[in-house]
Design a protein around this nucleic acid. Structure first.
Lengths: 340, 340
DNA sequence: CTGAAAGCGCTTACAG
DNA sequence: CTGAAAGCGCTTACAG
């Protein structure tokens, strides 16, 4: 491979002049610079980034941990992270942990070995036990998409999940619903709490036994939970699913039970995944700004890097937004009027 | 940071003895090794991978280009690639090109600078114009998931897409269908050709005007194409969609046209994406072994690396498989008999 | 504006 | 089985 030394000889200068020209630093006469550039061109020189990293101590690479990339939520995060990185001349080292704590730990150890300038961990509970390993890390670390129990050692950029649930609840309240149930995943306590708050704020309550845990975070799980909810209280007029996939199952359950949505039953989801717009009826859902969240988290990291300091140990909450579609309507089963 | 030299001093040896112990190479007495290991432990030493890379010339990192990660097809590929890499002690540098040729080119240049040991490009037409840059690459490069015009300079691991289309066609033929149409994306010529071959093989034909290009690779695009197909030939008994998303739109179109699937119209998709099992009726589709394909491609690369040679310039085709579900049935609209 | 020196932290032959 | 030397290809002060 052609080295900086080769270019230097070709241009009749020393290698650090070449270095100066390439980095655009230091003072180099335009004539010399031109000669160097010509030599670079002729030789097809391209700097060895590994050597540069060893000299500078920076790899211009950021590590990202996500549980998986097969969910649109994390896929969006990965792409948003990559966008910010790209804008700033950084590369992305990706690790999906896939419910494998050992694997997560192994990769963590690899990254610690100075191959990464900063690290972002997106909602990755596979890593929760290994996070202490990072407290001695020599590079900035941040957490994002963390709904519960974020270790307070690291800066966090996440969603105001409690408010997300609240928005869903308030929407249902505004439509007049009083008897409602929740289909929830175990990890979604904050959004469930927010949902309930919207009712207690009005002097109502969502009793504990109206919260139905889904056996799995899948449509089938939502189907089962919705059936359970409907069986427990046939007088329900609305359902909040702590995740869209559960809501999709709930739509099925409503159909199976002969209940028309939203006339006989309103359903609100959470996350606003792309597929929910395709459901019939299109699902009302709480949209959470995933890409913005990812951007903020990376920018926090990059800021820390440029100040060569540790990031402020803060927690930043992005605000969710309710997206009203067709699956929610006023209590009482009034048909919507097609004409405006 | 603690260095190898620090460990050596602590253990009372020289640094290359430490190096030997860490790499498990060279002959070191068990007593010395134990002392070194103790020193490593006490000091919390972790080797600097960048320095090692500079010395060895290998980064143990493989680059992967994909168009996006938000499609389950590519998400699966990314995870499969990562699995193989992880099993072999390699890291993943990910680049999603997102229809941005300039960005693709920029990243390509970055990787060329010796920061990667090998490169895998998965079905990425954003890079097609920049592939020549890679012909001088000093590391092995492979292509996978390439349906058309794969440059014959690089080894390719892909799907026998022609056969995928053929399987769809043969299935329909076996069910007795003769008047069929195709909903296609422009990039899917091979699968369309395979589909047509199943008919010409039986002395029938799928005329050119029975191939309808979808305006977009979305359900809406499939909907429009299916409507066009049905309008052009109301006597159609079956539809082949070159991609599942189009098939999803076709299901809608059938519903809108008052045609029951599969009784009045059979529909076959392609790719066997996870969501098609959730469609109603569940979609018959051609499953393509994406993860296996990705594994093979990475293993090819890794093999080349261990032989420190260039990979054989070959093309390897993985075989697709038809998955029959509910959206296809015998021609003639006979209702399926629920009892065995 | 340009050049000589030292160093980043490791590994690779090669002596002993 | 262990150590002294050279080198991987850059960058960072520092003279001139």
């Amino acid at each position: 491979m052609v080295t900086m030394q080769d270019v230097a000889e070709r241009a009749g200068v020393t290698k650090q002049t070449v270095s100066n020209v390439i980095r655009g630093r230091g003072a180099v006469s335009t004539a010399t610079a031109a000669r160097v550039r010509a030599a670079v061109e002729e030789l097809g020189y391209t700097p060895n980034l590994v050597a540069r990293s060893l000299a500078t101590g920076a790899t211009r690479t950021v590590g990202l941990f996500v549980p998986t990339v097969t969910h649109s939520f994390y896929a969006d995060i990965v792409e948003a992270v990559e966008d910010v990185l790209d804008e700033n001349g950084y590369h992305l080292l990706l690790c999906t942990t896939r419910l494998d704590g050992e694997r997560a730990k192994r990769h963590l150890a690899g990254l610690t070995s100075r191959s990464v300038d900063a690290l972002l961990i997106a909602g990755d509970r596979d890593l929760i036990d290994h996070l202490p390993l990072l407290s001695e890390a020599s590079f900035p670390v941040a957490l994002c998409a963390w709904e519960t129990e974020a270790p307070d050692r690291f800066p966090v950029v996440t969603i105001d999940y409690e408010r997300a649930g609240y928005l869903a609840g308030r929407h249902l309240r505004e439509l007049g619903h009083e008897r409602v149930a929740v289909l929830a995943s175990p990890d979604h306590a904050p959004r469930v709490a927010g949902f309930r708050r919207a009712f207690t704020a009005d002097g109502l309550a969502v009793p504990d036994d109206a919260v139905h845990l889904a056996p799995a975070p899948t449509p089938a799980g939502g189907f089962a939970a919705a059936n359970a909810a409907l069986a427990a209280d046939p007088g329900l007029t609305a359902l909040f699913a702590s995740h869209d996939v559960l809501a999709l199952g709930a739509l099925e359950a409503a159909r199976a039970a002969g209940r028309s949505v939203p006339h006989d039953l309103s359903i609100v989801g959470h996350d606003d995944n792309p597929e929910v717009g395709l459901a019939r009826p299109a699902l009302t859902s709480v949209a959470i700004p995933r890409r913005e969240m990812a951007r903020e988290a990376v920018e926090l990291l990059l800021r820390a890097l440029s100040r060569s300091g540790t990031p402020a140990n803060s927690i930043q909450l992005l605000r969710p937004e309710l997206v009203v579609r067709e699956s929610t309507g006023p209590v009482g089963g009034r048909r919507a009027d097609p004409a405006g």
